[in-house]
């Protein structure tokens, strides 16, 4: 526990000094939220829609920080530590992959939650955003989406040989999810073929759930997204710890 706390404290300091994460996980989603608010104001999501465009987008906006941290930041830091042989030094101490990866997980969770709070405050205070759904369901869904996305990052960071390979893998995973999941392009305007492709991306299912829980819409068939998200989380985390590479 002492090791966990000290490592987390140090990693937070290092990450803030680096400034990448404050920009991509905190400032960027905030700016996008403000832009959507300025452009669409309180326009309805589509003609006759009972909720605004901003309300519809909220579920997607809060995943930007999850992806920036969990799918980009986390694997790059871990792979960078491997490349700089910092993990090799850790290997000759009484610490293990669970502690090292756990610290990273909590670090990026803190970023994501900070961004969630900031996005909510911006939408609420600046643009009169109303949250209609169940806060409990939303929080549960949010945590599941986060675990699922982070586990993908853990796997990439745990096994990628160096920072370059991690960066390629992370980009291959990050950008299609960002573009096709509804985080940027609205899912509703995609042609059916693209929607079917997007549906297998765990982030798409996560955003659908977040949208529904934000707006208090009926969840419909939740089993497929739940099983997909939880399955990804379990499989990737187990693989990341099992096949963790020190060097």
């Amino acid at each position: 526990m002492k090791a966990f706390k000290t490592l987390l404290k140090t990693e937070i300091k290092l990450s803030l000094r680096d400034m990448n994460m404050p920009i991509f996980a905190i400032i960027m989603p905030f700016v996008v939220t403000v832009l959507i608010g300025l452009i669409y104001g309180d326009k309805a999501a589509y003609p006759g829609a009972p909720y605004t465009f901003l309300q519809q987008s909220f579920g997607a906006l809060v995943t930007i920080a999850i992806c920036a941290g969990g799918v980009m930041g986390l694997p790059l830091v871990v792979a960078g530590y491997r490349q700089k042989k910092i993990l090799k030094r850790f290997r000759t101490t009484p610490t293990g992959p669970v502690l090292l990866l756990g610290v990273q997980l909590v670090l990026y969770a803190l970023y994501a939650i900070a961004s969630l709070v900031l996005t909510f405050l911006a939408a609420w205070l600046l643009f009169g955003f109303h949250f209609w759904g169940s806060p409990l369901l939303f929080t549960g869904t949010y945590l599941l989406v986060m675990l699922s996305m982070f586990s993908i990052g853990l796997l990439v960071g745990g096994v990628a040989r160096d920072e370059k390979i991690a960066s390629i893998l992370a980009s291959v995973l990050y950008f299609p999810m960002l573009v096709f999941s509804g985080a940027t392009l609205p899912y509703e305007v995609m042609p059916p073929v693209l929607q079917r492709f997007a549906d297998v991306l765990p982030l798409t299912q996560g955003i659908k759930l977040l949208k529904a829980t934000t707006l208090g819409l009926p969840l419909g068939s939740v089993w497929f997204p739940l099983v997909l998200l939880a399955g990804v989380a379990v499989v990737c985390t187990v693989l990341a710890v099992r096949f963790f590479r020190w060097e």
Binding site: T10, L14, R17, D18, Y81, K84, K85, I86, K88, R89, T92
Partner: peptide
């Protein structure tokens, strides 16, 4: 253990 080369995170 002290390795031949120094391994440490940047900006620490």
């Amino acid at each position: 253990v002290q390795f031949q080369e120094a391994y440490y995170p940047e900006k620490i």
